[in-house]
Amino acid sequence: MNDTDGVRSDDAPAGTAKSDAADKVGAGLPEQAGDSATVQTVTINKPRQELYSYFRDFSNLPAFMDNVERIEVKDRQLSHWVVKAPAGATVEWDARVTEDRDGELIAWTSEAGADVPNSGRVEFRDASGGRGTVVSATILYDPPAGVVGKLVAKIFQREPAIQARRDLRRFKQLMETGEIATNAMNPAQAREKEQG
């Protein structure tokens, strides 16, 4: 399935490997930052190109990535990410696109000096059975050390997989239904939940 993952005896994505998942994922990335891996996948009932285009405009991402406060798009390759951390703090990094195939794939890496080094790729593939598009996000991230690290870890180390999984679910909801499901009773409560 995955041409860039090196010699393996099955077709399972590298991010699901029982050992050395990060190395195996890294081997498939143009540039690698981060040494823990997660892979999350969702099928979205929309054409590949439409999903890719929405995702490729990074200023759209905070709409469904609840922990991303804002993304400043500098040019087609470079962007600056400001991400919520516990206790009202934020963590920041510059990200650079390392590979970009129209309608298929976006890979990125954080630049030197990132609060949380990370890299990865998002792939868009036609789903079998005409079910739309399989979107998979493979993410490498560095669990940071130290006191700030612990705060950061709370969102990135302990639950990076969960964050990514929730983001993909919200991406799917937004693309398929035009809105993101919420149990909020009123708009104020909805904003509170988002800022959670």
């Binding site: 969960i162 999984r165 929730r166 983001d167 679910r169 919200r170 799917k172 909801q173 398929e176 239904t177 993101i180 499901a181 919420t182 149990n183």
Partner: peptide, 11 residues
């Protein structure tokens, strides 16, 4: 339905 349960509640 895939989309009616809020993302955080699906965990």
């Amino acid at each position: 339905c895939d989309n009616s349960n809020p993302a955080d509640n699906m965990d």
